[in-house]
Simulated scan of single mutants.
Amino acid sequence: MLNNLVSGLSMINQEDGTIPGPALSALETVITFVIVPTALFLVISLIAYAATADRKKSEKSVITHIE
């Protein structure tokens, strides 16, 4: 009886006429749903930080400033 319930659960989300694609391996799943989003977040964060970070003030040079 339990096997009938479990096998019925896998069919709940499938629509008529759909053919499921190949399954992802555990490594592909981790790369797709953990590593890629984390890397994108870090890249976007670094770009935003670099674009809005305070600029280093240039020190007065002997060539451009006379005391």
Rank of each mutant, 00 (worst) to 15 (best):
L2F: 15
N3D: 12
N3T: 07
N4C: 15
L5A: 07
L5R: 13
L5V: 11
L5N: 06
L5G: 07
L5H: 09
V6M: 14
S7C: 06
S10L: 09
M11G: 14
N13S: 14
N13W: 14
E15Y: 04
E15M: 11
G17W: 02
G17L: 01
G17E: 05
G17A: 05
T18K: 09
T18P: 02
T18Y: 12
T18G: 09
I19P: 04
I19C: 08
P20H: 07
G21M: 09
G21C: 03
G21D: 06
P22Y: 03
A23H: 03
A23T: 03
L24T: 00
L24S: 03
S25G: 04
S25I: 00
A26H: 05
A26E: 07
L27A: 12
E28G: 07
E28Q: 05
V30W: 03
I31P: 01
I31K: 02
I31H: 04
T32C: 00
T32V: 03
T32G: 00
F33N: 10
F33Q: 05
F33K: 07
I35E: 01
I35W: 00
V36M: 04
P37Q: 03
A39F: 01
L40T: 00
L42K: 00
L42Y: 06
L42W: 12
V43M: 09
S45N: 11
S45V: 09
S45G: 12
L46I: 14
I47G: 08
A48I: 15
T52V: 02
A53K: 15
A53V: 02
A53P: 00
K56P: 02
K56T: 05
K57N: 10
S58K: 10
S58T: 13
E59Y: 12
E59W: 06
V62Q: 13
I63V: 13
I63D: 12
I63C: 01
T64S: 15
H65Y: 14
I66T: 12
E67N: 13
E67G: 08
